[in-house]
Amino acid sequence: MKRYLTKNMVALLVACGTLVSCSSEQKTSLSSDKSISSSPIIKIEKFVAYTQKFNDTTTLKQNHATGHIGDFFFTHWKDGGSTSLTMKTNGEFNVSWQGGGYNYVGGPGWHYGDKNRVIGYRFDTDSGANFITVYGWGYDNTMPADDPAHLVEYYILQRWTDAYEPSQNGTFGKTFISNGIEYSTYRTLREEKPSINSTSTFYQYWSKPKQPLPLGKERQIIFADHVKAWADSGWALPNMNNFNASDDPTYQVMAVEVFNPPADGTASGRVWDARLD
């Protein structure tokens, strides 16, 4: 749930060199010897900011940044406050935030959604992020814009706090089991809110486990199970590989989100495409 900077503004920031800072110095204590090979990078010409790529440990401290770190796409966005995202080319990442009245969302993943993707991840620390979640968008520009189903923001929650509880305001769909975890689906409506396609009215789809999942364990999220569960609930997911939106393509990331954090905190882990293990 974020506001968007126009691509012209982002392109200007990229040209001015104000978006990112890079360093070969190791910025996190995360370690793993699992080899990584992600989906191939497709040349993106429409969204200028997405064409930047970094081949070393990268730390983002500015308000807005997108691009690739190694073979991974990343998004890093905040509307104020102080938050940094440090990434390595193998999918390791660390988000650090200071308390304040602002919203942040960011993390590594892919610049398009894939129904058959199996997202591997491990989270080692979490100091109270509102959401740790698979996060992405689907968009069908052939559907009427006044149909909320034409644009969908989706969440597969893994950890969360009670500051925002989708089951309290959402329409319940069904309960299902995926990879040994029981999830419940919910749908919420966002009316005239910022999105990847300017200000729009759109749906949010949620998959929520019975309780937040513990840290320190490697897990796999079978995305197709969630797509099916949403469809079984009557909620179709639009095109997840669409470059026709005004502000962003339909990316899919493992995101850390904080809003109005009451105190400083951090969340760290790693993401990979588990189909390639």
Rank of each mutant, 00 (worst) to 15 (best):
N244P: 01
T161K: 00
K210H: 02
K43L: 09
W110F: 15
P194T: 03
N241D: 15
F73K: 03
A229H: 07
D247N: 14
Q98I: 00
L215F: 11
Y121A: 08
G107Q: 10
T59P: 00
I181W: 10
P262D: 05
G120Q: 10
F54Q: 12
T59L: 07
F54W: 14
P166I: 10
K193A: 15
N103L: 11
G265L: 09
S233L: 03
F202M: 08
D79T: 08
S31P: 01
R3D: 09
T125L: 02
H64R: 15
F73I: 01
T185Q: 08
S37D: 13
L189V: 12
Q62V: 01
V227G: 00
T199L: 09
N242K: 08
N130D: 15
G106M: 11
D33H: 11
T188W: 07
N179F: 04
K208I: 15
F172G: 05
G81C: 13
V258P: 01
Q204R: 15
K27W: 01
Y186T: 03
I36Y: 01
V48D: 07
S23Y: 03
L276D: 00
Q98P: 00
R275C: 09
D273R: 05
A231Q: 13
W97L: 10
R122Q: 14
R270D: 01
V258C: 02
I36N: 09
D124G: 10
E182T: 15
W137S: 05
H76L: 04
Y205V: 02
D56L: 07
G173T: 12
Y4N: 08
S35A: 13
G17Y: 02
A263L: 02
N169G: 05
G136Y: 02
L237N: 03
S246W: 01
D71G: 14
A236C: 00
G234C: 06
K174E: 14
R270L: 10
S207M: 04
S31Q: 04
N116K: 12
S32C: 08
T6M: 06
A49E: 14
G265T: 07
D33I: 06
Y112V: 11
G138Q: 04
A263P: 00
R3I: 04
N244K: 15
A163T: 14
G269Q: 09
G180I: 07
T133W: 07
G70E: 05
V152E: 03
P212I: 04
Q252E: 13
F93T: 01
Y155Q: 05
A231F: 03
V14M: 06
F74Q: 09
N241G: 00
T171M: 05
S167T: 09
L276F: 09
P108I: 06
A129L: 07
Q158H: 13
D114V: 12
P194I: 12
Y139P: 00
Q26A: 15
Y139Q: 00
R187E: 08
V258Y: 06
F131H: 10
F202V: 09
G17F: 09
P238E: 06
K208R: 12
T59Q: 06
S39Y: 11
K2T: 11
L85P: 05
T133M: 02
F243A: 13
Y121W: 12
Y183Q: 11
D79W: 02
S200K: 13
T18Q: 13
G265H: 08
S35L: 11
V20T: 11
S23H: 02
Y183F: 14
K7M: 12
N130P: 00
I44L: 03
R3L: 06
Y139A: 08
G128Y: 07
W110S: 09
I36V: 15
T58C: 14
D225V: 06
V95T: 12
K217A: 10
F172I: 04
Q62M: 03
